[in-house]
């Protein structure tokens, strides 16, 4: 394997890993407040379909239309996540059931597909596509050029989001409250932190980011809309959050790892070396199981564990 191919693999790994990373960063925020949202796949598809709709029907300068498309995708997916927030935070419904319902409702055979039909989005390419940016003209710099300086804007946005989340969660007062809400909502409540507000806000931000991740599929990867275009990326995003031990840097690393491994499989196969494709599609889940085992062990629980209140509805006075 030559030098150029390794760089190409890393560059494509980052490219295809990005939509999962963005969605997983959103899910991470929601989970850190204690709300598990299994509706990521559905929210991503809503983002994907709305972004494509905008890119096809709104005219204007390329950059502006793309920004509107991403914002619209975020808004649409946040709206979908509002359902989950209401169900699980206000009504204290089971988070797993509500999240699954969300994916079914918005997913490949649901609302996203209906919107696509309604706006007649199938079969025609969009008019605006987000191409790679040659940052500072450094695209041709050896090694780093193709990996770091020749990616579409959303890749850079995802890095900013990851850094912002790290800083927010670990270095700010609000971040401390957020962690308190996810670890021990009773204590947070006693401290005067508004548990419900925190949970609502972060489920909505999580939804918005899932929408942005979804928009990557119809604005960057593909210039067409087909039902279920994310083909399971939302489920991998959920696995990524666990795999990353609920840390933003881990989310990026995990997403890129899957991207690189997947590209590696394709490149080996094209060179006549056939590994079972199932290995690559199962990898995220195999690694997730390993991580779950670590997290569940006595040694790992305190160090890397899930937010203690994850999945548990909060009611003051146990109401």
């Amino acid at each position: 394997m030559n030098h150029g191919l390794v760089i190409e693999l890393i560059a494509t790994g980052i490219f295809y890993g990005t939509p999962m990373a963005i969605a997983a960063l959103g899910e991470l925020l929601a989970e850190r407040t204690g709300v598990l949202n299994l509706g990521v796949e559905g929210m991503m598809l809503m983002g994907a379909v709305v972004a494509f709709w905008v890119s096809r029907d709104v005219s204007g300068p390329n950059g502006l239309v793309l920004i509107i498309a991403v914002v619209a995708a975020a808004a649409a997916a946040a709206l979908v996540s509002l359902i989950h927030a209401f169900m699980t935070i206000t009504l204290r419904a089971n988070q797993v059931v509500s999240g699954l319902a969300l994916t079914i409702f918005a997913g490949a055979t649901g609302l996203s597909s209906y919107v696509g039909d309604l706006a007649n989005l199938g079969g025609n390419p969009g008019h605006h596509i987000m191409n790679a940016i040659n940052v500072f003209g450094l695209k041709n710099v050896p090694i780093l050029g193709p990996i770091v300086f020749d990616q579409p804007a959303l890749v850079y946005v995802s890095w900013v989001i990851a850094i912002a989340i790290f800083w927010y969660v670990n270095k700010t007062r609000q971040g401390l409250h957020l962690r308190a809400v996810g670890e021990n909502p009773e204590a947070a409540d006693a401290m005067g932190v508004r548990v419900t507000h925190y949970r609502y806000a972060h489920v909505l931000i999580g939804g918005a980011l899932a929408g942005v991740g979804g928009s990557f599929y119809t604005l960057v990867i593909s210039s067409e809309w087909t039902d279920g275009i994310t083909s399971g990326a939302g489920w991998i995003a959920l696995a990524l959050v666990i795999l990353a031990f609920w840390q933003p840097a881990g989310v990026l690393a995990g997403a890129y790892l899957f991207g690189v491994v997947s590209a590696l499989g394709a490149n080996l196969s094209a060179r006549g070396v056939q590994l079972p494709p199932e290995v690559f599609s199962a990898l995220p889940y195999v690694l997730t199981i390993v991580v779950l085992a670590i997290v569940a062990s006595g040694w790992g629980r305190g160090r890397f564990g899930a937010p203690a209140a994850l999945g548990v509805p909060y009611a003051r006075d146990g109401a």
């Binding site: 494509t12 295809y16 083909s231 997947s262 590209a263 080996l268 196969s269 060179r271 494709p277």
Partner: peptide, 25 residues
């Protein structure tokens, strides 16, 4: 003539990776 199989009909990213793989090869 290079031949590669994705074992997946629908995933756009998997199909695109296969295309990149063939072109890289």
């Amino acid at each position: 003539v290079r031949f590669t199989c994705t074992n997946n009909w629908d995933s756009v990213s998997i199909a695109q990776n296969a295309a990149s793989g063939l072109i890289n090869a």
